[in-house]
Simulated scan of single mutants.
Amino acid sequence: MTTMTGAAIGEHEIAAFQALHKRVGDAVETALRGKREVVDLVLVAMFAGGHVLLEDVPGTGKTTLARAVAGALGGLSRRVQFTPDLLPSDVTGTSVYDPKSGQVGFRPGPVFANVVLADEINRAAAKTQSALLEVMEERTVTVDGVAHAVPDPFLVVATQNPIDLDGTYRLPEAQLDRFMLRTSIGYPELVHELDVLRPGSGAGRIGTVPTVTNPHQVAECARRLATLHVADPILRYITELGTATRADDRLRLGASTRGLRALVRCVQVYAASHGRHFAVPSDVQRLCGPVLAHRLVLTREAQLAGATTTEVLAEITARVEVPRPTPQ
């Protein structure tokens, strides 16, 4: 993507990004087949500078997806298996004394990578969860008063299982808000599951994922996509959706301003991935659930009635008036 610092993103840049987005998605699909919508959502978060929470049952490919994205990116990737005895320094790094030099130096933890897979994040204690979430927000690790920046781009793909909750530590709502979007993979369709099971097919093998880009190109794309045009009617539409969640009687916590800002960033990337240099209402409707649903909190009465934040958000989206913006 051609660099045009300070100028709005051009149509030729949009075309270049659309082609890049497709190449990365195709590369990831060599390991995780039949889940292109999920792959595209993860790529939206990556190019928007955010992080992803994958919530699904075991064995559906959460780890494979994260490692495949890292393989296509060509950057440094690390995996952290979260357990109850994991310490914050095991994630972020710590100061270590070097007997040869007689000096204390910083030993980076696994968060110093372009793609970090935080496996089963809800199995670690709250202090360790907070250490990771702080790095996600600040993009730096501070040890002994010295700030150490993590690589750019920096994508955390955290996984958690909605079952087998013994010995787990639920992520607080305020910390869930740190994730740009939440999604799930689900079980594969029959034809794709047969392909995975077929001996010698190569499906699901991380080694088959081709490297189609590099961290510098991804970081540059993210900076340029932040200039993509979002018309005032679209911004007003997003604001009205957020206001509606805060006024809904079934929700005791509506969408935060940070959540709405994340939605705008995701809309910019999503529009560009479809070859447009402007956003439309359908972009907002497609991304509203993955970006906002995990940030909402139901009232106790709504929980007892069997409601979910996804369902409530879908009803709100259906009743908020859709604007008719004129592309500029």
Rank of each mutant, 00 (worst) to 15 (best):
L181N: 08
G167R: 05
I163T: 10
R178C: 09
I185D: 00
Q160E: 14
T168V: 13
N161G: 08
T142C: 07
F154H: 02
E137G: 13
P153C: 13
E193R: 00
L165N: 03
G167H: 09
E137N: 13
D166V: 12
D166C: 03
T140P: 06
E137L: 05
E173L: 12
L171Q: 03
L194P: 08
L165K: 09
A174R: 05
Y169V: 01
L176F: 12
P153F: 05
V141D: 02
E193Q: 02
E137F: 05
V196D: 11
L190G: 08
G186C: 00
L181T: 05
D177F: 00
H148Y: 14
V141Q: 09
P151K: 02
A147T: 11
D144E: 15
E138G: 04
L181E: 09
L155A: 06
V156H: 00
L155F: 07
Y187D: 07
G145I: 03
H192P: 07
D164Q: 14
G145Y: 08
F179I: 02
Q175R: 01
R170L: 14
Q160F: 04
L171T: 06
L171P: 03
Y169K: 01
E193D: 06
G167S: 12
H192D: 15
P162S: 02
T168L: 07
E137K: 13
E173F: 06
L197C: 11
D166I: 05
D195K: 13
V143N: 04
P151N: 07
D177L: 05
D166S: 15
G186R: 00
L155I: 02
T142Y: 12
Y169M: 01
L190F: 13
L197D: 11
V150S: 01
R182L: 12
V157K: 01
P151T: 07
T140R: 14
D152N: 13
P151R: 05
D177G: 08
R178N: 05
E189V: 11
D152K: 13
L176P: 12
G145N: 08
D166E: 15
Q160Y: 01
T183P: 08
F179E: 10
G186Y: 00
L165S: 05
T140A: 13
E138S: 07
V141P: 12
V156G: 00
D177Y: 03
T168E: 04
R170N: 15
R182G: 12
L171Y: 02
A147N: 09
E193L: 02
T159S: 08
A147Q: 14
M180Y: 10
R139K: 11
R182M: 14
S184D: 12
I185Y: 00
V146K: 11
N161S: 05
A158Y: 04
A149S: 15
L171M: 12
L181K: 11
L194I: 15
L165I: 14
T142P: 07
L194Y: 12
V191N: 12
H192I: 04
A158T: 06
V143Q: 06
D144Q: 10
T183C: 10
Q175P: 03
T183Y: 01
Q175I: 05
L155E: 03
D164C: 05
T159A: 09
V191Y: 04
R139A: 09
E138K: 04
V156M: 01
L194V: 15
D195I: 02
L181I: 10
T183F: 01
P162W: 03
P188Q: 07
